[in-house]
């Protein structure tokens, strides 16, 4: 099963992509992008009322939700967001403590994983050069569709040194970027709880569809 774990829709202030248009694009590009679902990770927010079940049924794709928050160690994806987590952490705060967030989210039933670790300023690699490693990190986004040349490559050493699991996501803000990088899971993921549990356990790997897309189009 393949999911794009890092996507932004028009709910994020820097994206203009409607969720349904993402799904239409994936349906159209099925040959090059065999994606089974997406996880919406809007910037610095969590909307507990958003409901995409009708779209899931209409397009036969899994739609899950998380959030991308900002910490003193860079940006972090949070999956399994619940009331306990949003009560404790203000997602609009761009200076959250990663040392506090990551173990606490795990304790409250979710998982928080650093994204685009190779990017300057907002990626884990640079912060690990001057600060101690964060307790409780189990996985990092080893492949990010929005990263520049060399940024994804920086992550390999990090994974090797700390033994983190690796996943991928497109970080799409535009419709045509959805699914360009994703994560292949050994087991089926149907719910956010499945995703949280699997991210802790392992049995997944990042996939890059950019070459495949170029060949088909």
């Amino acid at each position: 099963m393949i999911l794009d774990l890092h996507t932004h829709s028009e709910a994020s202030e820097d994206s203009r992509a409607p969720v349904e248009t993402y799904l239409k694009w994936l349906a159209r590009k099925r040959e090059a992008l065999p994606i089974d679902g997406i996880v919406l990770t809007e910037h610095r927010q969590w909307n507990s009322h958003a409901d995409y079940r009708a779209l899931e049924d209409a397009y036969g794709l899994v739609i899950l939700r998380g959030a991308e928050v900002e910490t003193d160690y860079g940006h972090v994806l949070v999956y399994g967001v619940n009331e306990d987590i949003t009560r404790r952490f203000d997602f609009t705060n761009v200076r959250l403590s990663a040392q506090e967030l990551i173990p606490a989210v795990a304790h409250m039933g979710g998982i928080a994983v650093p994204c685009h670790p190779g990017r300057p300023t907002i990626g884990l690699c640079e912060h690990y050069e001057t600060k101690p490693p964060i307790d409780g990190v189990v996985a990092v986004e080893a492949l990010n569709g929005g990263s520049r040349r060399g940024e994804n490559e920086r992550v390999h050493a990090l994974i090797e040194r700390y033994g983190y699991h690796a996943f991928g996501g497109s970080d799409s803000h535009l419709v045509s970027f959805i699914g360009i990088c994703a994560t292949e899971f050994d087991h089926e993921i149907r719910t956010i709880d499945d995703l949280v549990q699997t991210l802790f356990q392992g049995g997944y790997r990042p996939l890059d569809f950019r070459d495949q897309l170029r060949k088909v189009s």
Binding site: E13, H43, R44, E70, H75, T92, V94, R119, P120, T121, I122
Partner: peptide, 13 residues
């Protein structure tokens, strides 16, 4: 009014 962080540091909007 909000703040975000990017490759080049903190930005306020």
């Amino acid at each position: 009014i909000y703040e975000k962080t990017g490759r080049s540091g903190s930005m306020r909007f």
